[in-house]
Design a protein around this nucleic acid. Sequence first.
DNA 1: CGGAATCTGTTGACTAAGCAACACCGGAGC
DNA 2: GCTCCGGTGTTGCTTAGTCAACAGATTCCG
Lengths: 197, 197
Amino acid sequence: MSPNPREVEEKLDPRVKRTRSLILQAFMELLPEKGFQSVSVQDITEKAGINRATFYAHFPDKYALLDHSIQQGFRAEIEKRMLDACHYSDENLKTLIITVSEFVSTANSHCKPSNPQFESLVEAQVKNQLQGLLQVWLEQDDAQIDAKTAATAASWAIYGLVLQWNHDKNKKKPPADKFADQVLPLIASNLRLAQPA
Amino acid sequence: MSPNPREVEEKLDPRVKRTRSLILQAFMELLPEKGFQSVSVQDITEKAGINRATFYAHFPDKYALLDHSIQQGFRAEIEKRMLDACHYSDENLKTLIITVSEFVSTANSHCKPSNPQFESLVEAQVKNQLQGLLQVWLEQDDAQIDAKTAATAASWAIYGLVLQWNHDKNKKKPPADKFADQVLPLIASNLRLAQPA
DNA sequence: CGGAATCTGTTGACTAAGCAACACCGGAGC
DNA sequence: GCTCCGGTGTTGCTTAGTCAACAGATTCCG
């Protein structure tokens, strides 16, 4: 058998766990103070107290590290609110939208000056996880439209709306939960097509 | 050339630095919550996230670890108050006495229930460093009594007085700097014999 | 008492991390 | 143009840390 995914997360060499967390932590501290572009692999390894070669044993480059960080960060937010392992409901959908809104908002504030590579990685990761999550929510029953299609549409819709909301600088940008209330009917009607008849 | 002592402290393998600090930190957190006797090597390595064998690569046993911890702790206090690298004066001597008082006091409070092995290690370490420090203070000039003798006497005197002071439970135990003022003349007169004529 | 359980030190084989050196690239500055 | 400099990936060799297993020692409890 190839290594079990659940094992990979928990029972791995303590050195590896340490090193990864040192890299992640150093990276997170450097991001706000230097911006993504100007933080170098050297900066990270220096702050983490590890050798530069060790970094490359874990990540191909700093972009992969960013990718991984976003993935972990968003996943953590999802799990914190127990949105994984639950079913579809308007209530849960609203919480999900709020989560995305806040995540995108704080993520962008972590990386100044704002950087297209950064933002597109956030977008890709978040949409991807959204899509997977929604699909699980819908997959439990048969329906008019298949779960994957509905999940894809909804994840793009949510992310697009959040982007627009987030770019409402200063003026009239409502708090995340007000925003969620506004867009909820739109997304919900979309998803109900994939709910049991 | 054998490895320079100054290099040993700074330019050593990052893994070694990490591991030692993990051990120290775990130990310090465990001491107050379990007491020295009931802290096992397993507890320490578990909390530090290292392998038990790795512990034994750094310290022969938990007593050696305690010894090292006390040494580091006291040295840090001395350096914080810049008592190393300075000369003899009543002012400096008073600060030194206060430092010892506070160190012994907080050290004992860190280890409950109080333990004879613990206390005797504190005593040995502190007296040893005291002796060395005082000797350096006195060594700068000729005098009636040689520096080593005076330093030894003074370090024992200081430690003995501090112990007595520290065992004045609750009642009438003055703060460290009042205590220092009381005993200062005693120690000072002792040391002045080793001062330049 | 006796044995079950737990902690201790120690060993040898394996793996991750460190280090130094390399070629390579892209920009800054003369 | 040119070099110089700083960052990037990559390599092979060394060293620290991990793991599992071992034989004592100690404690605990029926």
